[in-house]
Amino acid sequence: MAIEVRVPTILRTYTSGEKNVSAAGESVSALIEDLEVNHAGIKDRLVEGGQPRRFVNIYVNDEDIRFSGGLETPLSDGDVVVILPAVAGGSR
């Protein structure tokens, strides 16, 4: 099972500069575990206390996983996962 994962610039230090990597897993959380095997350290940038980080967006086939089951969102062969850091900030 191959899932294509698009990695944002800021996380490419974990993927040797690669923009697209392939990983496997039947859910987003399993996919992240698999990513961690080959790209040690990336998990901590995506997950905090068992939840997706507040300021990281993960999309499965263009849908934000916050609206589709979070880390338990199921995956199947050929799905595309996009990771994007939130663009956010503020004066406080």
Binding site: N57, D64, L84, V87, A88
Partner: peptide
């Protein structure tokens, strides 16, 4: 120009769907 989904005087955040489309 993007919509500030936070609509706040002290915080801004791109809407997650807008963000994906933009990228």
């Amino acid at each position: 120009p993007m919509v500030n989904a936070a609509m706040s005087p002290t915080f801004y955040e791109f809407d997650s769907t807008d963000l994906l489309r933009l990228y």
